[in-house]
């Protein structure tokens, strides 16, 4: 195990966060604050409570999840796409470092960033609404697992993409819409029955639902199912990453 290499990649990647502090952390925090002001305070004030909590409080887990999903994908994809684009990937490929170690370094850094971001959004949210966390252990577990799973997805995207457009397209056209439709702002139970069924095909529904359960104990789908879905996503991403390194796909000729 080349621990020095894992540490080198991890530290190098996190250093980018500090360098681009505004973009990486401040940006999402500010936009989340805006969501709270608009949806939580201005509009949410007119709503009755959802699943027994105020709409503002109901929003918190969904908004955290949405930022964590999109930022995990974009951070991790950028982290690996950048060296491919600039050519500096040669160094990682020629170093005595295994695929597994490379992934730990890049994905670990991206996931860490997402967990920090999620925590910051929670703290920001606390300034706007009062909420409680019923199952702190599961809250952290969902946050970490989701960050890792979507950072892996981002890593795959960063290897697959062969241009900046493709790098943007997946977060913009797939992750963000699925997160919006995944119950970040509403309970699936509020949808007409037909759309409820359709919504169940959206994996993000399970993640948001599970995460919200860890706060308020209420969920759209059984929490076991949420956990299973998170594990399944993680497993699929790991399998794809394993295949990428196995075949050298887009990394080695």
């Amino acid at each position: 195990m080349n621990l020095h290499a894992i540490k080198a990649i991890y530290v190098f990647e996190l250093a980018r966060t500090w360098r681009t502090l505004f973009q990486s952390i401040a940006g999402p925090v500010i936009s989340t604050s805006l969501y709270f002001i608009v949806f939580g305070t201005a509009i949410g004030g007119r709503f009755a409570s959802v699943e027994g909590v105020s709409y503002g409080a109901f929003l918190v887990p969904g908004l955290v999840m949405m930022s964590v999903l999109t930022e995990s994908v974009s951070n991790a994809s950028f982290g690996i796409y950048m060296p491919r684009y600039s050519g500096t990937i040669y160094e990682v490929l020629s170093a005595p470092i295994s695929a597994f170690e490379t992934v730990i370094g890049y994905v670990g850094a991206a996931a860490t960033k997402s967990v920090i971001l999620g925590t910051l959004i929670l703290l920001t949210a606390r300034l706007f609404v009062d909420f409680s966390i019923g199952h702190p252990f599961w809250m952290v577990a969902f946050l970490v697992l989701t960050s890792v799973a979507f950072s892996l997805l981002g890593f795959i995207l960063g290897i697959w993409a062969n241009g900046w457009e493709k790098l943007q397209i997946v977060p913009m056209l797939i992750v963000t819409p699925l997160a919006f439709l995944g119950g970040s702002f509403y309970s699936i139970g509020m949808l007409p029955p037909f759309w409820q069924k359709i919504a169940l095909f959206n994996p993000i529904v399970y993640l948001v639902s599970g995460f919200r359960w860890s706060f308020y104990g209420a969920a759209d789908v059984p929490v076991v199912l949420s956990l299973a879905m998170t594990a399944l996503l993680l497993a699929i991403c790991l399998a794809v990453v394993w295949w990428i390194f196995r075949t050298g796909y887009k990394l080695k000729n």
Partner: peptide, 16 residues
């Protein structure tokens, strides 16, 4: 965007 020092130190770590 890296400093010379950071990028050279990174290489050393990468090689274990």
């Amino acid at each position: 965007f890296e400093s010379v020092w950071a990028t050279v130190s990174f290489s050393r770590g990468l090689f274990g």
